[in-house]
Amino acid sequence: MSGHFTHHGGRLADACARFGGTASDWLDLSTGINPESWQPTAPFPVDWQALPDPAALLALERAAAGHFVCDPALCVAVPGSEVGLRQLARLLGLPGLYQRLAYGTYRAAFESAAPVDDLSHLPNRATTLVLGNPNNPDGRILSRDALLSLLAHQERHGGCLIVDEAFADCKAGWSIAAEVAPGRRLIVLRSFGKFFGLAGLRLGFFIAPPDVGDDLRQRYGDWPIHTAALAYGQAAYADHAWITATRSSLEVRAAALDSVLRRHGLTPQGACPLFRLVTMLHASSVFEALAQQHILTRPFADHPNLLRFGLSRDDAALSRLDAALGKASHGG
């Protein structure tokens, strides 16, 4: 299976080149991005000729911190959590640890990185442990107590815990951003694009102790966030009615996806409503069969028995997946 599709989702140009069609022909289920994005209730102007306003950056970070329920002074906006993690790994300068089934950038970000198979048996040395919560791609949730226990281990040995909460907006109780504090070796990553469905804005956040946050601000300079991201981010985080309604609607739509998958003998895994993971013997064959019908899912190079499905935009798209799975399962 081509590495183009196993590295990240959203490779529609590669899909068109290999399987034909144009982007408009495809149903892209390869990402964990909300297909119903946040939009302003009324258009607001974005002045592309002006440099990003420092006051707007502070306002964005305050709005985001209110949503994350953390200290605004510890909230640092960055141009995407993926690139931010790479910068953070260089800043910390420690070997990285990651779970074997996890987001690929955890491994790629660190100069020296290794998988850990059992979180209850971490090495007794200084490392940076990176965990997704919810984890991508299996949607597993670690409890607050479990995360704080891992943090205590990392701190005893001079290490650090990074919790990637890229998908945590889906449920308020998942985040431990409030636990970040000066002197603590805990850093939380947040992503704007997943839940709000605007990944193209490239907006993310670190909730970090002051020494780490100050260093990150220096590395990104005076204008880390472009003008549109400043405006959209501040307005979206203040839209509490949309956030509440979207959390409920995502659960309903995830349940509908579960029903379709189960109808075809597949067992959906994960608590995150933005995606579901399934285990099957011939995942690569199902990926290919769906791609032949212009439906893009997410395979994994190191886990050839896994396939991840993102949410469909509407009932018609879900029905299309239902029919395509029927054809795939019968080899038609």
Rank of each mutant, 00 (worst) to 15 (best):
M1C: 02
M1D: 01
T6L: 03
H8T: 14
G9A: 04
D14Q: 14
D14P: 01
A15W: 00
C16H: 10
A17G: 15
A17F: 07
R18N: 07
A23E: 11
D25C: 08
W26V: 08
L27G: 05
S30G: 08
T31Q: 12
T31H: 03
N34V: 02
N34T: 10
Q39D: 03
W48D: 07
W48L: 12
W48S: 06
P52L: 02
A56L: 07
A59D: 09
E61T: 13
A64G: 12
A65K: 08
F68M: 10
V69A: 14
C70L: 09
P72V: 13
V78A: 03
V78C: 08
Q87R: 11
A89C: 05
G93A: 10
L97K: 10
L97T: 06
Y98C: 05
R100C: 03
L101I: 14
A102W: 01
Y106F: 15
R107N: 03
A108V: 11
A109E: 12
E111A: 15
S112N: 05
A113V: 08
S120R: 13
L122W: 08
L122V: 04
N124D: 15
N124K: 15
R125W: 09
A126L: 13
T127C: 15
N133K: 05
N133R: 10
N136S: 14
I141Y: 01
L142Q: 11
R144E: 15
L148W: 04
L148P: 02
S149L: 11
R156Q: 14
G158F: 02
I162S: 02
E165N: 03
A166G: 12
A168N: 08
G173Q: 13
I176L: 10
P182T: 12
G183C: 10
G183Y: 12
L186F: 04
S191Q: 06
S191A: 15
F192V: 00
L198N: 13
L201P: 00
L201I: 01
F205L: 01
F206Y: 07
P210S: 10
V212M: 10
G213P: 12
W223I: 01
W223C: 09
H226V: 09
L230C: 00
G233V: 00
A235Y: 00
H240E: 15
T246D: 03
T246F: 03
S248E: 14
E251M: 05
E251H: 10
R253G: 04
L257Q: 02
D258M: 06
D258Y: 03
D258S: 06
L261H: 12
T267G: 00
T267I: 08
P268V: 01
P268K: 04
A271Y: 01
F275T: 05
F275L: 10
R276H: 13
R276F: 04
V278N: 08
A283V: 06
S284A: 14
Q293E: 15
H294M: 13
L296G: 07
R298K: 15
P299T: 14
N305T: 13
N305G: 15
L306Y: 13
L307I: 06
R308G: 09
L311F: 05
D315E: 15
A316I: 11
R320N: 07
L321E: 05
K327C: 09
G331A: 12
G332L: 14
